[in-house]
């Protein structure tokens, strides 16, 4: 009789522990604290028209030798609505663009700030000082955009550097539209103006 009692108690405890474990599992699962992950693509039991004969962007497409659905433009053709940046040298750019075509407005500067902080801060830093996070990991440090030499560059030269790159700096004509690049030029000017104002006021304070 005594041994049977023991087994019953043992079993009850064992199974209630199992039950509690399951309950915890369920609570975690339903509250979203467990995320199952899987490397295998989701099952498609009923395929409907999930995959159609059309070619999607960036798809694998075995028809072409490089197996990509994205095609380069044919040789000797010019895209019709695309903006192509043609000047090869700074001089050509200066000739083509005498001045920044965008007005200086809060909207344009906001756009310039947004694009600058997306595309330029990784290297140039938020203030343009050349201390971005990628530079701290070993990328060659760019010069301070607020230095006098850069301040003296005409708008078109900065536009040209953004479009074509310079030495190790990559060009951004493929990522920024023409208007966006001009907006960034305005923003660089604005950073320079602000940097000049702060150094002026701090040197005045230091002088007094």
């Amino acid at each position: 009789m005594g041994s049977m009692k023991k087994t019953v108690r043992f079993r009850t405890i064992f199974w209630s522990l199992v039950g509690i474990a399951f309950a915890i599992f369920w609570v975690l699962l339903l509250s979203g604290n467990i995320l199952w992950t899987s490397d295998t693509p989701p099952l498609q039991v009923i395929r409907d028209m999930d995959n159609q004969m059309r070619i999607a962007p960036q798809e694998e497409y075995p028809f072409f030798p490089d197996r990509s659905s994205d095609r380069p433009p044919l040789p000797y053709t010019v895209p019709r609505y695309a903006q192509v940046y043609t000047p090869e040298t700074v001089d050509e750019a200066l000739e083509k663009y005498p001045e920044n075509p965008l007005p200086v407005t809060e909207f344009v500067l906001a756009r310039g700030k947004n694009r600058f902080e997306t595309f330029c801060t990784p290297c140039h830093g938020v203030e343009g000082k050349g201390d971005g996070p990628v530079v701290k990991r070993g990328f060659p440090a760019p010069p301070d955009l607020n230095r006098d030499i850069t301040r003296g560059y005409p708008d078109a030269q900065i536009f040209h550097i953004i479009s074509r790159g310079q030495n190790v700096m990559p060009g951004y004509a493929n990522k920024l539209s023409e208007a966006d690049r001009w907006a960034v030029v305005h923003y660089v000017r604005w950073l320079q103006q602000r940097a000049a104002q702060t150094t002026e006021s701090s040197s005045m304070e230091a002088g007094e």
Binding site: N100, P103, V104, T105, E106, F107, V108, L109, A110, R111, K113, N114, H186, R189, W190, Q193, R194, Q197
Partner: peptide, 21 residues
Amino acid sequence: GTEMAAWGQSKPTWGSGRWLK
């Protein structure tokens, strides 16, 4: 479009001075 809101006091001294929002 509101990126410049915090810095709005330092207005640009160049260009046409048209200041839009």
